[in-house]
Design a protein around this nucleic acid. Structure first.
Lengths: 108, 108
DNA sequence: TCCATATGTGAAATACATTTCACTTATCTT
DNA sequence: AAGATAAGTGAAATGTATTTCACATATGGA
């Protein structure tokens, strides 16, 4: 079972996707809305959403011309709170980076 | 706070590291022991452990010549069970790969 | 049907993480 | 101190994910 679970983390280990998830935590949104809010190319968002979808981190439903993506809160809410707790208590690497602005990370 | 949490996932999104974590779940171990058990170069294990250490997923203590690494079960046990539940319920990508042997994945 | 809006897709280019390997450091034993 | 064992390190090579961009598809309205 654990033999495939690196995919779970691989899929989330990316700033853009975490950005998307953070937005979707507030409310469901379409690709264009996310692109505007996060100031990223639409196509980037689209690719990212597709992988999130494939791993079941988000769901999508059609609504006219738009496709509204929403977070799988069942998984994501407890997951994010677990992460937050961990980072506060244990993560030296994250602590070290806390002073830095996002722009200083090469990874977009 | 979420702005850095992709590092959490990035660090875990790798087969070797999940392999190490799975071994350490059973019992603490040294670099050489892990290398033998996982049939990987010692240096690979060492690099991987360093990043796991930096993010607080494992701890280390010196014991004579050896350094014994042990899992941060506080974080990892609930995390892994959450992942397992999610994969069973939601992850299409993982389901799709279940039939395949590990050797078919290019990522070592 | 034709146009505009919204989104998906494939593949090359790019960026980044992992691997490899030779070398260094640390600790214990004799 | 010398040798043996255990582990860390740096950097080039490699592998893989992300980004980019031109194009394709889908839906609704005039």
């Amino acid at each position: 079972m654990e033999s495939k679970c690196h995919l779970f983390f691989e899929t989330l280990g990316n700033k853009l996707k975490i950005g998307i998830i953070t937005k979707l935590k507030e409310k469901p949104a379409s690709v264009n809305e996310l692109a505007k809010q996060l100031k990223q190319e639409r196509s980037k968002i689209s690719h990212a959403l597709l992988t999130l979808l494939g791993c079941g981190f988000v769901e999508v439903k059609k609504e006219g011309k738009k496709r509204i993506y929403k977070l799988n809160k069942n998984t994501m809410m407890p997951l994010l709170s677990l992460v937050e707790k961990h980072v506060q208590k244990y993560c030296k690497t994250c602590k070290k980076m806390e002073g830095k602005k996002d722009g200083n990370n090469k990874k977009s």
